[in-house]
């Protein structure tokens, strides 16, 4: 049995007047893939967006209750969301590559967090992230091309690679395959399985 990584206690979320989550108590373990399932609109996305405080971006959204990661409360006002999100990455429903080159898409995270001071270090991070996202072979010759020019499945893997690039402890994925065809979906499911393995 693995250790508990994320612990949610009495979590309530409101969008304005409307309450979206009611007293969610849930423990999630490390080195595991946990899937949330449920009908549309039941609050899956709302819940996972609480884990890296992406709900902060939505003005009318109010969160009460506790979420702990490694025993540290993250709903604390004084907690630095920037470093939280560095540890908890996220992949969205619709692939959202930046309108930049493939290389810049991946190197963006490491650059802003000060990982990879030199060009060669960055190159290495980009290559590793793309390899882990099983995209390297497809794009290694065209790293300068815009990320938006890739196919839907490739774009989503690029977004996964982007999330991996800063070495997060947790990756949240919000229906990452809903916009993809079955073949691309299969590839990404395989990838998710790979990612849970501890890396060196």
């Amino acid at each position: 049995m693995n250790n508990v990584k994320i612990k949610s206690k009495n979590l309530n979320v409101y969008y304005g007047e409307k309450q979206a989550l009611f007293n969610v108590n849930l423990d999630l373990n490390e080195k595991e893939v946990t899937a949330l399932i449920g009908p549309s609109g039941c609050g899956k996305s709302t819940f996972i967006r609480c884990i890296n405080r992406m709900n902060d971006v939505i003005d009318i959204c109010k969160v009460s209750g506790n979420i702990e990661i490694d025993g540290v409360e993250i709903n604390d006002k004084n907690l630095d969301v920037v470093s939280l999100r560095e540890r908890v990455g996220m992949v969205f429903q619709k692939p959202n590559p930046f309108p930049k080159s493939i290389y810049d898409n991946i190197s963006y995270g490491p650059k802003i967090h000060g990982k990879g001071e030199t060009k060669s270090e960055l190159d290495e991070i980009v290559e590793n992230s793309l390899k882990k996202a099983a995209l390297w072979e497809e794009v290694k010759d065209r790293l300068d091309e815009p990320g938006t020019g890739l196919s839907g499945g490739q774009q989503q893997r690029l977004c996964i690679a982007r999330a991996i690039s800063v070495n997060p402890e947790v990756i949240l994925m919000d229906e990452p395959c809903s916009a993809l065809d079955p073949i691309a979906t299969a590839k990404i499911e395989e990838l998710i399985d790979e990612l849970k393995k501890p890396t060196l």
């Binding site: 992406m54 560095e86 990455g89 959202n96 930046f98």
Partner: peptide, 25 residues
């Protein structure tokens, strides 16, 4: 908004998101 979300999700601050993602876009 999805572009901003993508940037926030890797831990960029608001100004970093604006300077490096929103404005270039």
């Amino acid at each position: 908004q999805s572009l901003r979300d993508g940037s926030y999700a890797i831990g960029a601050t608001k100004s970093e998101t604006i300077k490096k993602v929103v404005i270039p876009a």
